[in-house]
């Protein structure tokens, strides 16, 4: 579903945020992306979603190169950033309608998807309110509805559990598994290592823009916890 090969991204100030990073996520997999602050997680995700350009390497979504086929790749991806800045002057429903219009979602599909996810995330009563009146968690839920309503093949989430209440976190985990059962894939970053350990089929630990560890969760952690492994890699043995 997602194949990143030798991705390198250098910012204008010369800082190499991502350095020859490679990873692979198969359909049906949930991949956790772990690393300390500033390790390059968000940069990698932004390169995959077409928000940032990169100078070398290759990113393929469903076998299509993001640079050569940006629209096809973006049509398959739904992305939620760590701090979703949405259109605050719109009501929730208008925002969802905008996303559905731009993504070409049919009337039936948008109505059923929107109702389903708004109901299970408990936001349906607030869809008539302005996004500017939403709390951080409500904005996060709105962004999730917009993403799930599209039924993406690849869902990319940057710190998705920050700001969500326990019920919404639980529902999100269920939905991620459901999406994978349908043949989709999930790529998400998190600092909550327990969640990553329980939820992910694969984990990728990134350090200073490079992949430090990558593989099946069970194999990578072996006889220790993901937290211990992460602390070892971070140099806190």
């Amino acid at each position: 579903m997602l194949a990143i090969k030798d991705l390198t991204k250098t910012y204008k100030n010369g800082k190499k945020a991502v350095d020859s990073l490679s990873l692979h996520i198969a359909p049906g997999e949930i991949c956790g992306f772990i690393g300390h602050n500033g390790a390059g997680k968000t940069t990698t995700m932004k390169c995959v979603t077409g928000i940032l350009s990169f100078e070398s390497g290759e990113i393929k979504v469903k076998g299509l190169d993001i640079k050569a086929h940006p629209l096809e790749c973006k049509a398959a991806i739904a992305y939620i950033p760590d701090n979703p800045d949405l259109y605050e002057n719109m009501t929730g429903i208008k925002y969802l309608k905008f996303i559905a219009d731009v993504c070409g979602i049919s009337k039936d599909k948008r109505e059923s998807g929107l109702r389903k996810y708004a109901e299970i995330l408990g936001l349906i009563d607030n869809l008539g309110d302005l996004v500017s009146s939403y709390s951080h968690g409500m904005k996060q839920k709105l962004a999730l509805i917009a993403a799930l309503m599209r039924e993406p093949e690849l869902l990319i989430l940057d710190e998705p559990f920050v700001g969500l209440d326990p019920k919404a976190s639980f529902i999100l985990k269920e939905q991620l598994r459901e999406l994978c059962k349908r043949g989709g894939a999930v790529f998400f970053s998190t600092h909550i290592l327990e969640v990553a350990e329980k939820l992910c089929d694969r984990v990728v630990i990134i350090k200073d823009g490079k992949v430090a560890v990558s593989g099946d969760t069970a194999q990578v952690t072996a006889d220790k916890s993901l937290e211990n492994l992460f602390m070892e890699l971070a140099g806190h043995e």
Binding site: I93, D101, V102, E111, D125
Partner: peptide
Amino acid sequence: RHTRSSFKLGGVSVTGVVPA
């Protein structure tokens, strides 16, 4: 800003990309 939490979901119309 305050929320009213009184929205009733009806039909959602379809618009083209540019008009949206």
